[in-house]
Simulated scan of single mutants.
Amino acid sequence: MTADVLPSQASLRILCLEDNPLIVLHLEHMIEDLGHVFAAACESFSELKDRFSGLDVDCVLVDIDLADGRTGPEAAAWLFARNVPAVFVTGQEQIAEAFRDLVVEVVPKPVAPESLQRALAKAATG
């Protein structure tokens, strides 16, 4: 953790909806460095739906393109309907902005710890 990034006050259990294992690993380290808990990762929207009832999460980081296609916006809508805060983490900010009403924040890739910290703080406060 860098000296200018302080852990958030509220610790969240965070799921990563991302199909690239290297990005998942990177996000896992960032999440933990920020004082949160990496709860799980899913590589597709269908996997998220299959596993969701067995997961205890406070926030989901959602990529736009997943293993089952461009299903990130659909996943964000599904989470929104269940009152689960989501954050788009993507290199496709234009697409993410079109669905901005479904998420608390859009974090561009490559992910900066400060951007992720701000997004998670928004998720923690509703």
Score class of each variant (00 low, 15 high):
residue 2 T to W: 14
residue 3 A to Q: 13
residue 4 D to I: 13
residue 5 V to W: 11
residue 9 Q to G: 13
residue 9 Q to K: 13
residue 12 L to G: 00
residue 12 L to H: 05
residue 13 R to A: 12
residue 15 L to M: 08
residue 17 L to H: 01
residue 20 N to P: 08
residue 23 I to R: 01
residue 25 L to M: 15
residue 25 L to T: 13
residue 27 L to D: 07
residue 27 L to V: 07
residue 27 L to A: 04
residue 29 H to Q: 10
residue 31 I to M: 02
residue 33 D to H: 10
residue 33 D to Y: 04
residue 33 D to G: 14
residue 34 L to Q: 02
residue 35 G to V: 09
residue 36 H to P: 07
residue 37 V to K: 13
residue 37 V to T: 15
residue 40 A to N: 04
residue 41 A to H: 06
residue 44 S to K: 06
residue 44 S to I: 02
residue 44 S to D: 02
residue 46 S to P: 00
residue 49 K to F: 03
residue 50 D to W: 07
residue 51 R to G: 04
residue 51 R to S: 12
residue 51 R to I: 09
residue 52 F to Y: 13
residue 54 G to P: 03
residue 54 G to M: 08
residue 54 G to F: 09
residue 55 L to M: 15
residue 56 D to T: 11
residue 57 V to N: 04
residue 60 V to R: 05
residue 60 V to N: 01
residue 62 V to Q: 09
residue 63 D to V: 09
residue 63 D to G: 07
residue 63 D to F: 05
residue 64 I to E: 04
residue 65 D to S: 14
residue 66 L to N: 00
residue 67 A to H: 06
residue 67 A to Q: 10
residue 69 G to W: 11
residue 71 T to H: 05
residue 72 G to K: 05
residue 73 P to R: 03
residue 73 P to T: 04
residue 74 E to G: 00
residue 76 A to M: 01
residue 77 A to V: 01
residue 78 W to V: 04
residue 80 F to A: 14
residue 81 A to S: 11
residue 81 A to R: 03
residue 82 R to V: 08
residue 84 V to Q: 05
residue 87 V to W: 03
residue 87 V to H: 00
residue 88 F to E: 06
residue 89 V to I: 07
residue 93 E to K: 12
residue 93 E to D: 11
residue 94 Q to M: 14
residue 97 E to L: 14
residue 99 F to W: 10
residue 99 F to E: 14
residue 101 D to N: 12
residue 102 L to M: 08
residue 102 L to C: 00
residue 104 V to M: 09
residue 105 E to W: 01
residue 105 E to I: 05
residue 107 V to T: 02
residue 109 K to R: 14
residue 110 P to T: 07
residue 112 A to E: 15
residue 112 A to Y: 15
residue 113 P to H: 10
residue 113 P to E: 12
residue 114 E to Q: 10
residue 118 R to G: 10
residue 119 A to M: 03
residue 120 L to G: 00
residue 122 K to S: 08
residue 122 K to G: 01
residue 123 A to I: 12
residue 124 A to Q: 05
residue 124 A to C: 06
